[in-house]
Amino acid sequence: MNAFRLAGDMTHLLSIILLLHKIRAMKSCAGISLRTQELYVIVFVTRYVDLSMKYYSFYNSIMKIVFLGTSISIVWYMRYHKVVKQTYNKDVDTFRHIFLILPCFVLALLINRAFTVIEVLWTFSLYLEAVAILPQLVLLQRSRNIDNLTGNYVFLLGAYRAFYLLNWIYRFFIENHQVRWIPWLSGLLQTAIYADFFYYYIKSWKNREKLKLPA
């Protein structure tokens, strides 16, 4: 474990806690894409299949359980909670996430480190996580006014993978010089997808104005 990875995990955890807090406190999920949240559940389920089989550390296991639990409860709130689900506008959250899931799965079957169930699912989860934010970003572009919590949520979500990029640089040079193209390139793409959001987010923060993404 290194400081970059810990900072990344804490940023990731903070983003999810922030979203869960927004939904529970405001009893609203306005501006949040259910599609993206469902993709994250798929990412965590396919990535943590070895939770019950492989033990790395207490931290690793507890964080996996927290990520699984929080992401599933967010989807539960948005789909089934009697008050929250009324605030979900499915007419604007129209991104067909099957167009993300299928290509990522096929790619994981073709490009992976080993053709085993665990490894292919792990690879699939990395490819899918790289593009999982797209429905949320599309929804933000359609939203006239983005509330601060949602903006901060997306920013933290993007920042966590940027920390992971630093973690991979650190691990390559300091630890085992092991080349890991799949996480590296997926993480690079994931962070690049946030680039324009980061630009508008920082601009709105500097100019103290409302966050607005160009349509």
């Binding site: 990875r5 995990d9 990731h12 990535r47 070895d50 492989k54 790395y56 690793n60 964080m63 996996k64 990520f67 480190r113 080993a114 085993t116 665990i118 490894e119 792990w122 992971y164 973690n167 996480p183």
Partner: peptide
């Protein structure tokens, strides 16, 4: 080869 594919990151 296969076994030493650690998924030690979250």
């Amino acid at each position: 080869f296969v076994d030493d594919l650690p998924h030690d990151e979250l």
